[in-house]
Amino acid sequence: MSGGTRLENANPVIFQRSGERLLTASDEDEDVHDPIDDREIFDILSYFDLHLIRAINDPEHPLSLEELNVVEQVRVKVNDAENTVGVEFTPTIPHCSMATLIGLSIKVKLLRSLPARFKIDVHITPGTHASEEAVNKQLADKERVAAALENSSLLEVVNQCLTNRSI
């Protein structure tokens, strides 16, 4: 990052991480069936960092989606039995130009991380973004998502967001 680049939000508010999920005895027990729950989906999302979207983040001291409060556990809804997942995300500022990209990244992350039986719905928390409807429409459109991922430069940005930097 050369010195001159101005950040859209250089000094964002930081939220506390909720910490690792505690291991319980039943997690270790071979015979118990653990259903997929809200927390699990939340963990999948919260640990990836949007480090390359500079506008909301700087590299390395990576602020995760959780620390920026983009994703909260209460806004993740899973129904294991009915095979549905719903995620609401909150852009850091109402005019955040990255909202579509964040949404797309979340969607791709879930597509890659969940069994194929799930129907995945990603949208903006109501009332938190200027062009909420347009973004939601884009994210809900299967064909547009598929087409976006055909675009190699867009795929590149999404992949960069999903690259785990700690390794």
């Binding site: 997690d27 118990v32 069936h33 653990d34 963990d43 890659r112 999404v158 992949n159 999903l162």
Partner: peptide, 28 residues
């Protein structure tokens, strides 16, 4: 990814995420 144990699933999620990046633009 659909394993009955959560610990297995979380390993699978990480491994699969990395494999998706193999040879893909922006990945490795």
């Amino acid at each position: 990814l659909d394993d009955k144990k959560r610990l297995v699933r979380s390993e699978a999620v990480q491994a699969r995420g990395e494999w998706f990046l193999v040879g893909s633009p922006g990945g490795r």
